[in-house]
Design a protein around this nucleic acid. Sequence first.
DNA 1: GTCTATATGACGATAGAC
DNA 2: GTCTATCGTCATATAGAC
Lengths: 189, 189
Amino acid sequence: MKPESRKQEIINAASILFKEKGYSAVTMRDLAKAMGIKAASLYNHIQSKQEILATIIIELAEEFTTGMNRIVNSEKSTIQKLENIIDLHIDVTLRNADGLASLNNDWMHLEEENLQYFEKMRQDYEENFRNIVQKGVDKSEIRSYNIEIMVFSTLSTLRTLYLWYPKQNDIDAAILKHDMMSVLLKGVV
Amino acid sequence: MKPESRKQEIINAASILFKEKGYSAVTMRDLAKAMGIKAASLYNHIQSKQEILATIIIELAEEFTTGMNRIVNSEKSTIQKLENIIDLHIDVTLRNADGLASLNNDWMHLEEENLQYFEKMRQDYEENFRNIVQKGVDKSEIRSYNIEIMVFSTLSTLRTLYLWYPKQNDIDAAILKHDMMSVLLKGVV
DNA sequence: GTCTATATGACGATAGAC
DNA sequence: GTCTATCGTCATATAGAC
């Protein structure tokens, strides 16, 4: 275990609570109680409740953006790119499943610049995904069903991994990746 | 247009607001403003904010339960049953996409009996789904990937339809059903 | 770094006039 | 059926002692 800063401990505790009840329903008193301190004491480590949410979401969104950019710029086949995207989602989910709940369900409570920044990253991510699938169809690497439905279907599954994976006790990450690729790609290839 | 009761108008307006910001972040004052009246006036038609949430969610959950029971008790092949489940989700989504946001994201804010009732229905639904897939694998009607992953993947996509379908302008319901079946089932059959 | 005390405002909901 | 006025509670956040 690396020693965690008090701020990071707060963010981790908040991620769990936000996952259970959502950002708006979690109070600073709830969070303080989970940390074993009083609400006022939280403000020695963080500036606001909003800052906690932004830290959780923006960090994760940037991970996805970085990962997707690397995949897009790689010289790989469409199938390999899709495999890398599945990999990316599974890796992030394993590392921070709790935070992904906020990214998926509470992004609309971000304020101003962070909201715009997040929405831009999400839009770019989806567009990159769509372009990869489209190019695969053009090159006859994958079947030509409705592109939107293929993109939507795959992304829905990957985005919901955070809800499902922590409930599976004894499934190995490597096996998960393999089976996930089979199920998601066999419908497409 | 059928004439709607004032209560139903409130529930419909609430469904839209809950979809946009989530149950906890929507105030009775927000809802009243959307209706063009004052917050206090809402209470002539509904008993509480909680009652609105419960009405939205329980009604939809019962639709899914009824539909699933009919499918389970039918004498059809596994493939046909899966097609019927996809049909069910698309039909409910077309009829009440806004309400499905609450069912998916705000069920944890239900209180007492309604929370238990909902959780029981959801658990039964997933178990019925899993049993249909399992039986299909046993009878070699569908491929034997990891059952949990197939169930999770399909259900994730169907449950997220409410987010995606309203954004697609000109896609016909029949075409949607057909392509959705292809994408979801070809990965399985 | 945590505490007590508190400022300031918003929340869900009710009472009673019209 | 809608209004104004208001109650009691809880929200985020700050000030300042220890």
